[in-house]
């Protein structure tokens, strides 16, 4: 018969027996989970930044000839584009006014007239680069269209950056996880080995390896749970500090915190399993 209450009490007793090692294990778990969470959070923020960029994306279709027919044709084409949320005609005069307002210069005399073409502005709710490229190519094939302007280079640069970050963070995260497993496992093992005499006398009284296994599980899960809570708290503080100092509010969804907490739990559980498979005999 498995005496779970006894195993739980032994597990907590194990943690209380060497508080310094418990604090070390919890601290290491929290640190590792926070760093891994931070890396994951950075990737998550970059992705949301990309999504935000896609949402705010506008495409300008410059008209070769600003005629009613050309305008109507291009606007009707653009309205049928997948993901297009808002289509607006901007006359050449308005473009000139917008640019002059931005630069503060009187540009018409400088160029000897209005150098800007009229265009149709298309705003997307969500867009994908491949789709946009094919739409742009199709639009540019129309005789009414001079060219299609959208921030393709910025987009691809952002994509490349995100990919590089994800790739390098994968390596760094893996290394940190391995290092953390070693260090957490070492402190958990030291705590268990410290009570070898106790394990032996309990075994001689008939305590089974199964109960001792539950005891170890309680030790690992408690360390993981506490470390996870600390990591979530640290990440929330970091996010608050980031919002405060960089004036860009960021927040992580609930599932992100749960993921960080579960990561800490998994780190402590796996570290314990790797380093202490059985209760050491004296």
């Amino acid at each position: 018969m498995l005496s779970i209450p006894l195993a739980i009490r032994l597990g907590f007793g194990l943690l209380r027996s060497r508080p310094t090692l418990t604090i070390l294990a919890v601290g290491l778990t929290a640190l590792a989970a926070a760093v891994l969470g931070g890396l994951f959070g950075t990737v998550y923020l970059l992705r949301s930044l990309q999504a935000e960029f896609m949402t705010a994306l506008t495409v300008e279709i410059e008209l070769a000839h600003d005629t009613d027919a050309a305008r109507a044709r291009v606007m009707s084409e653009a309205e049928n584009w997948p993901g297009a949320e808002f289509v607006q005609y901007v006359s050449a005069d308005n473009v000139l006014r917008e640019v002059e307002a931005e630069t503060g210069e009187n540009l018409a005399p400088l160029f000897g007239g209005n150098p800007f073409p009229a265009f149709v502005r298309v705003r997307f709710g969500h867009a994908e680069l491949a789709t946009l490229d094919s739409l742009a190519r199709a639009a540019e094939a129309l005789p009414e269209v001079l060219r299609v302007v959208y921030p393709r280079t910025l987009w691809t640069d952002l994509e490349r950056l995100a990919l590089r970050v994800r790739g390098s963070f994968g390596w760094i995260g893996g290394l940190i996880a391995l290092l953390a497993l070693g260090l957490i496992g070492f402190s958990l093992r030291a705590q268990v080995r410290n009570l070898r005499a106790t394990w032996e006398f309990l075994a001689l009284l008939g305590l089974s390896q199964r109960i001792l296994g539950v005891t170890l599980l309680v030790q690992r899960l408690t360390v993981g749970a506490l470390g996870g809570l600390l990591a979530c708290g640290a990440l929330a503080l970091l996010a608050a500090a980031y919002s405060l100092f960089l004036l860009r509010p960021i927040s992580f969804p609930f599932w992100f915190h749960i993921t960080v907490w579960l990561t800490a739990l998994a780190l402590a559980a796996v570290a314990g399993m790797l380093t202490t498979r059985r209760i050491p005999a004296k």
Partner: peptide, 21 residues
């Protein structure tokens, strides 16, 4: 003598019974 130092005398006395479930 071997005991669970953090448990009470009462708990230590009943240890074999607890182990047996």
């Amino acid at each position: 003598p071997q005991f669970l130092a953090q448990e009470t005398v009462m708990t230590n006395a009943g240890l074999p019974l607890q182990i047996a479930g």
